[in-house]
């Protein structure tokens, strides 16, 4: 697809969509969203880029192999589950830290957050892999 308008639009849309994906991810714990949706949005943004510029350019933008993204996402999710084991709790138990934010309610950060981040990476990586490979091979 060699539409100039599409290319230009997407070039500007890409950072916005990625930002939106991060927003979706962060709010996911309290509002609709989360790792799945955010990962899909991130992947969708790069998919659009792939449609416009081809998989080769998109891979350059991503700069790492999607397989690495997937692997590290899985590993992150796994490790976030293993941390409570070190503390003598069952696998995947939530371990929470309160991060005080001035003039606001403290922000809770815990292992489920990292778990969700792992989900984010995996979903994004997998979807991108689908898109890249379908684009390249079919």
């Amino acid at each position: 697809m060699n539409s100039f308008i599409l290319r230009v639009t997407i070039r500007y849309l890409l950072p916005l969509l990625l930002l939106f994906s991060i927003y979706t991810f962060l709010r996911g714990h309290n509002e609709p969203g989360g790792g799945f949706a955010a990962g899909l949005i991130a992947a969708a943004s790069l998919s659009l880029y792939t449609i416009a510029y081809g998989a080769k350019r998109a891979r350059q933008v991503l700069s790492i192999d999607p397989r690495f993204l997937i692997g590290s996402g899985l590993l992150l999710a796994l490790i976030s589950g293993l941390i409570p084991i070190l503390m003598g709790k069952p696998f995947l138990s939530g371990v929470w830290l309160k991060i005080p934010i001035p003039r606001n309610t403290p922000f809770d950060i815990g292992t489920p957050f990292f778990f969700d981040l792992g989900v984010f990476f995996v979903v994004a990586g997998v979807t991108l892999m689908f898109v890249f490979i379908f684009e390249e091979e079919i």
């Binding site: 714990h29 989360g34 790792g35 995947l92 815990g110 969700d116």
Partner: peptide
């Protein structure tokens, strides 16, 4: 579960596995 989105808490915590 430290989250308000119950579905998401189920996904990543209650039924994380």
């Amino acid at each position: 579960g430290h989250g308000r989105n119950v579905v998401n808490v189920i996904l990543i915590d209650f039924r994380g596995i």
